[in-house]
Computed example of a mutant assay.
Amino acid sequence: MISINNSSPLLRIAVTGITGRMGKKIIEYFLIKKNKQLSKKIILGAAIVRKNSSICGIDIGTFNKINEFGVKITDNLELIKDDFDTLIDFTAPDISIQYLNFCVKNNKSIVIGTTGFKQQHKNIIRNASKTIGVMYSANFSIGIALILKILHKITKIIGNNADISIIETHHNKKRDIPSGTAIMMQDLIRDTLQSIQTNKSINYNLKKRMYPSKQKNIIYDIPIHSIRIGNVVGEHTVLFNILGERLEITHKADDRAIFAYGALCAAIWLGCNKKGLFEIHDIL
């Protein structure tokens, strides 16, 4: 059990975008209690929707057609700022930045799973992490976190002698192309190849990717091929082709519940006392 504050041993979570794909999945963990271990460490403190939503004021349990839960849906952060410790956000870049600024102002931790950020957004996230705890990742799958570690090792061994490509497939409603996860993989592979060329070891982490390099680095061609079709949750494959053989590293997500679980685990790990910029592999 983690001690979060003086009044409660549980970490109080606020969830934004509760009518979206990820928001719904995260809320399910509280309403259905899918994971008993998580239930012992967190409670739902607030359920947040876009401004002027017609569902404001409805109990989150009633809205999801189960028993009344005791948390009213709201679009007013000021009204519920004392009801949560950590906010989990999977919305859109500009909206995420608004929530981030609120968290900085009110000393709340934040877990950000939104993708498609531009560099100016990343600069704001980086600066916010000097004041509060920020967990930011393009993918909250524990499997992806492990694959990133594997890709680093494979690239060190055969990267210089292989043709490398990335294929990513998502549902046809996904806005950002390529996916944030594919870019994360591309950055890791490029940084690893760069470290081999310069004989310098790298500690691959989020801060490195958030700070654009001013050095003249070699640009390695690691193409990303994006497919948008049907309702695919997410698939990523990295191909290493060397003479006469091909190695494929693949991750397939069949249910968004894995991202919800990862985000909640990240929120528990982050708590409300840490400060700095973190990503999902930090909790492994």
Rank of each mutant, 00 (worst) to 15 (best):
C272D: 08
A162H: 01
I167S: 12
G57Q: 00
K41P: 05
I73K: 05
N76I: 13
L11W: 05
L284G: 09
F117I: 06
R246K: 15
H152L: 15
K41G: 09
L247Q: 01
I157E: 11
T91K: 04
A182Q: 01
P93V: 00
I43G: 15
D187A: 14
T131F: 13
L11T: 03
I42H: 09
N273W: 11
S39Q: 09
I42K: 02
N35Q: 06
N241Q: 07
I144E: 07
S226M: 06
D255T: 09
D176I: 11
E78C: 07
F240D: 00
I124W: 09
L79V: 11
S96E: 10
L277K: 06
L44E: 01
L188H: 01
E235L: 04
H236R: 11
N127W: 08
L239E: 12
I280E: 02
S54L: 13
F259D: 10
F140R: 05
N64Y: 15
I224S: 03
I58H: 05
K149F: 02
D191S: 14
K33S: 11
D221E: 13
I229K: 14
E28R: 12
F90E: 08
A14P: 03
L277R: 07
M135W: 00
S3F: 10
I142K: 14
R175W: 13
F240P: 00
E78G: 07
I189V: 12
Q120N: 12
K207Y: 13
F240A: 00
E68Y: 14
S213Y: 08
K208Q: 15
V49A: 04
I18K: 02
I268L: 04
T115F: 01
H171M: 11
A92C: 03
N107Q: 15
A128H: 03
L193V: 04
K153Q: 10
K156Q: 15
G20W: 06
A14S: 06
K149A: 15
T155H: 05
V111N: 05
K81E: 09
Q186H: 06
I183P: 05
I166H: 05
I13Q: 06
G116S: 03
K200E: 13
N106M: 07
I110L: 00
T237P: 00
V111D: 04
C272Q: 09
I142N: 07
T115W: 04
T19G: 04
Q215K: 13
D282I: 04
L193Q: 01
K41A: 14
L264A: 01
L188F: 03
N172G: 05
A46K: 15
N5K: 06
T62D: 03
R228D: 00
K118A: 13
A92S: 09
